[in-house]
Write a protein that binds this DNA or RNA. Structure first.
Lengths: 120, 120
DNA sequence: CCGGATCCTTTTAGATACTG
DNA sequence: CAGTATCTAAAAGGATCCGG
């Protein structure tokens, strides 16, 4: 039974809000790797994401940090060393990624041809 | 305890595969509305998404249909009538959206300022 | 090693007009 | 009503150089 009138099953705003934080092209992928590896330096992250460029990585990292989804830890030394990890708030988002991973596992070979996967 | 060697907590490919299906700018939003409303005509969908353009909507719908996440039902009549809904496969993706909605609900007023929300 | 700034190319998105 | 096609404007992306 649904409450008649203004709202149905789900509300738009919480969804739209969550989407606005993660809809950058690489954000989910960055969160994924930080989840998988716990802590990564800038260069490690770049290598993990393979095809991402310098510019993209730094802008996306800054936005994620501004939204308090990741934490940036800078060591004052030369050469510089910067480590990234999930923030507490970022961690709470991991069930979503978990869910997505499970879905991928179940459906990756659905009969459909995923060229994306075979591609590289 | 993690299996040492090649893989850790999670695999990349299932995640990358899932991401590849939903990373279009409007895809998640379209799936969301079809979930919320069950069935929507082309025009209804367009109104629901508010700022989406004609072109975007049709291309994203075609891709979602090609990936078997939604179903397009065309009535042969004049004026034309086309209804969109989630496919069986698309439905299995809803736990992910559910999860995202719940996260949004919990974090939408985290103290952080979501201009996105206040904006309109 | 990290990452900001710049220039330039490619992609994407919006507006408009047109068809069945 | 539900699209497609075309043209143009805007944004994203890549390469490179520089500086802490």
């Amino acid at each position: 039974m649904k409450s008649c009138g203004t709202d149905e099953k789900v509300n738009v705003k919480p969804f739209a809000y969550a989407m606005s934080l993660i809809d950058g092209k690489w954000k989910m992928h960055i969160l994924f790797w930080l989840w998988k590896r716990d802590v990564l330096r800038y260069g490690e992250l770049k290598r993990s994401l393979e095809t991402i460029t310098h510019k993209m990585l730094s802008t996306q990292l800054k936005e994620l940090e501004a939204d308090d989804l990741i934490v940036r830890k800078e060591y004052s030394q030369i050469p510089p060393k910067v480590e990234y990890s999930l923030s507490g708030r970022g961690l709470t988002l991991m069930p979503v990624l978990q869910c997505l991973c499970e879905w991928g596992n179940c459906h990756i070979d659905d009969g459909k041809v995923p060229e994306i996967i075979n591609g590289r």
